[in-house]
């Protein structure tokens, strides 16, 4: 029996510091077997959560990266036409013999029709990520990344998969998931996701973490960084996020910066250090100016 605290603990062993909301969402998703839709600004650890879960729960990670124009041939399944053609070519002589037994044309057609399923069997089916995760023997973790990049049609396609965990293939019928995968959808909110899809998911919004949690994240990833410095840099970045920057520094930037400071063996945050490493946290010229200004004000 898993509890919320249990989820928090095993995520921590996977190197992911979760807050209550995240832990509860994961707990519910595991118990209710429902997908989670995660929204939030880029770089706050949406994909990271999926990765940490996959390693902590030992579920194989099946990742589907969405993009504009993705379709069922890329996400669910496809027929291997080349292989089908090759087989029919090679079996031609066999077929001649098989069909020559029949008395007339009608019988020949019937004979052939009875074997039709040979050519649309799982043998010729290419499993794409969603089907692969459904058919996996072990319970897997299906990560549908950046769903907002796909088109509306693809979203509609997902509805069946996500609510019933099944895939309908016209030639084969309905294929149900052997083990329902733990499904995580992420979105950066560049497009509104339809309500139909939202309804089928648990909704989790991950924002920027609060001070203690962010410090804890830094400490877990870079234990050699001294705690005072970690607190300083996180505090500085939190102020920078309020500057109305074009690309506010996210948790991923915090971690990059922590790595840089570790390599530089810095012990204290000064405006000079900020000026030298500003490229790690600010990604636009105008942002760089604002951040260095802030450093001068805050750190002297």
């Amino acid at each position: 029996m898993i509890t919320q605290q249990g989820v928090k603990d095993f995520l921590q062993t996977g190197g992911y510091i979760a807050d209550d909301a995240i832990a509860t969402a994961v707990f519910l998703a595991l118990r209710m077997e429902k997908p989670i839709l995660i929204e939030g600004p880029p770089g706050v650890g949406k994909t990271g959560l999926a990765k940490a879960l996959s390693s902590a729960l030992d579920f194989p990670l099946v990742r589907l990266q969405c993009y504009e124009g993705i379709d069922e041939g890329k996400a669910l399944y496809d027929w291997e036409y080349g292989k089908q053609l090759l087989y029919t070519q090679l079996l031609r002589t066999q077929l001649d013999g098989y069909l020559s037994v029949s008395a007339d044309l009608r019988e020949a057609v019937e004979r052939l029709a009875s074997e039709e399923s040979l050519f649309f069997s799982k043998n010729f089916l290419v499993q794409r990520p969603i089907l692969r995760s459904f058919l996996s023997e072990k319970r897997s973790l299906l990560l549908i990344d950046e769903i907002d990049r796909s088109d509306d049609e693809f979203e509609a396609l997902l509805l069946e998969c996500l609510s019933d965990f099944q895939v309908s293939i016209p030639e084969l019928g309905v294929i149900e998931a052997k083990r329902k995968p733990l499904t995580i959808l992420t979105s950066n909110g560049t497009r509104m996701i339809s309500d139909a899809l939202r309804r089928r998911c648990l909704y989790l919004y991950i924002g920027y973490p609060e001070l203690e949690r962010e410090v804890a994240i830094v400490r877990v990833k870079f234990p050699e960084l001294c705690e005072v410095l970690a607190g300083q840099m996180v505090g500085f970045l939190r102020k920078a996020r309020e500057l109305n920057l074009r690309k506010p520094p996210s948790v991923s930037e915090t971690l990059d910066w922590a790595q840089v400071l570790t390599i530089m063996k810095a012990t204290e945050l000064t405006s000079e250090i900020v000026a030298n490493t500003v490229g790690v946290i600010a990604k636009h010229q105008t942002d760089i100016l604002k951040v260095t200004d802030l450093a001068r004000q805050e750190l002297g």
């Binding site: 909301a21 509860t24 969402a25 519910l28 309500d195 939202r198 309804r199 998911c201 909704y203 989790l204």
Partner: peptide
């Protein structure tokens, strides 16, 4: 949290 996760999308 439980209610929010399930009802607010």
């Amino acid at each position: 949290q439980l209610l929010r996760l399930t009802m607010v999308k």
